[in-house]
Amino acid sequence: MTAQAVISASDLSLTFTTADGPVFALQDINLTVKDGDFVSLIGPSGCGKTTLLRVIADLERASAGTVSVNGMAPEQARKARAYGYVFQAPALYPWRTVEQNVGLPLEIMGTADAAARVKRNLDLVNLGGFEKKFPWQLSGGMQQRVSIARALAVEPKLLLMDEPFGALDEIVRDKLNQQLLELWAATKKTVVFVTHSIPEAVFLSTRIVVMSPRPGRIIDVIETNLPRDRTLDIRETGAFLKIAQRVREGLKAGHSYED
């Protein structure tokens, strides 16, 4: 099957000018994400993985090179609401109930079948019955699931996730990883997922993009080829450990210990 490119970046660079001189956040990034892929961006802090995601989402502008999202420039893609974005924190609006938070993008877009969409997407993240709760009444993991439902409510083909489970404890994280994988299998979305956890990246992804800092660049791209209907037990298998080993090697090679 030749899937079309959902995201393609070529020779992408982004330089921030600061008082201490230029910071090369991204340099010569070339990346293609195909329809239905689950791509993880992994690397130490400062490697530009979040910046790359933000460039794709048109929350930052590249200084050089080109990116296209669904064949459009990122700005057009954003205006066409081509993607759903999940942030590091749930970023729920505390004065809105769960259903009002999930319905927020639909209010803004003026969607007609908002109520049905809210219900459908809350059910997808197993939060049926919590519609009338306010965010502070939910646990951190549940709040992040609300924010995933909110991103899904836009019903985009592309989901951009920026370390969505980074602030959660490992038990909750494992459970949400499993649920996310089921969600991905059920909805057939394309996902770009930023993480700094090697097991998370290997468990979730079809491809792992290993990045390195100063300047932020891609140093390895790994096809995982693990079966799609995997469970957490797969983390004990040899194939899994081999991929994790390669990611670790890549991170080690790219990291300079001078500083």
Binding site: G84, Y85, A91, L104, E107
Partner: peptide
């Protein structure tokens, strides 16, 4: 983050103000 969220929805100025 709350402001970026509005940007990802391509919300208009008045929408950001009211919502």
């Amino acid at each position: 983050m709350q402001l970026d969220l509005m940007r990802t929805y391509n919300a208009s100025g008045p929408q950001v103000l009211w919502k």
